[in-house]
Design a protein around this nucleic acid. Sequence first.
DNA 1: CGATATTTGATATGGTCCATAACAATTATC
DNA 2: GATAATTGTTATGGACCATATCAAATATCG
Lengths: 177, 177
Amino acid sequence: MTVSKSAEKTAEKSSEKPADAAKGRKDAGEPQAEALQLGELSEQLGYVLKRAQLKVFENFLRCMASLQLTPAQFSVLLLVEKNPGRNQTEIASTLGILRPNFVAMLDNLESRDLCARIRSTNDRRSHILVLTDKGKAVLARAKKLVATKHEARLNDLLGQANREALIEMLSKIANEF
Amino acid sequence: MTVSKSAEKTAEKSSEKPADAAKGRKDAGEPQAEALQLGELSEQLGYVLKRAQLKVFENFLRCMASLQLTPAQFSVLLLVEKNPGRNQTEIASTLGILRPNFVAMLDNLESRDLCARIRSTNDRRSHILVLTDKGKAVLARAKKLVATKHEARLNDLLGQANREALIEMLSKIANEF
DNA sequence: CGATATTTGATATGGTCCATAACAATTATC
DNA sequence: GATAATTGTTATGGACCATATCAAATATCG
């Protein structure tokens, strides 16, 4: 398993598109040092899983270029919307984000006026998280982009039924492996 | 999408197991600030894909603890075995590893006597990669561990047919998305 | 009550992985 | 034979992840 990340912010960074080790040639009749054999690699769950994940994230970022939302940021907005009134620790740990690393993430979202920290009156240690009006609006647009440009593409590629089966299997792995 | 990495080398680093935001309690009858709702998050391809990938890598590392092989290292050994006589650039780019980052990886494998760099006589710039005898032996053991402890677990979880369907769908995403 | 322990958000820090620029040695191209 | 391209390499910076530690606030318990 390996494969680099590529395509971060908005643009496409060249990086190292796997599976074309030698240039982008169009089948010209030259020596052309034959392509490498992947062999058992293409059957390795981890390998193919990682590759697929990178492609999906890459596509997600492209779809979200206009809103400048990363997958992680999107997940935070989704979770805060669904669970208003929770504090940083709860939101972060549910997403598997360590609290120290969540601080900068929130600083970013808050500086863009997408969400806000509110000192809880019950427990003045904790910061209650809420979406701002702008945050709600942006999230709504984000959801549409994801649905029409991102998830829709999976349906085209796999078909509705297979798409659902895939998500279910991945969930099973994520939860029970 | 998010979820931290956890479990790196051999041991289990606590980290932040998602989906149990509040302690590990056994259903005691206390206030117990209800669990958060994942909502649409659980249907997001990227989210579930990333989570599954982390779990699979985590399990892979556990299975390989005795051999101290990471997924990336395993993929390199597999590819070199399948394609003897190739140079660093070819192996690296096929795996999506950038050449500069491949150097340290090879330094590691070579220092453990798992593979070797050989100056090519045709082109004295390039280093031909080959597995050492020890490398072949370790890879053989690694394959067995992967088959019996890693991939087998997927069969138990999904069933043979589903497992194959999953790999196929992921490959499709990795190649055509 | 008051001492101690725990929790929350935050900072600092180190590790790993990924990406780009630049370089010397070698080879290809013209 | 001068110039361009390729290979392995180093240096470097960024993104992400993980741990230790801290002050403030709260909980716990004698």
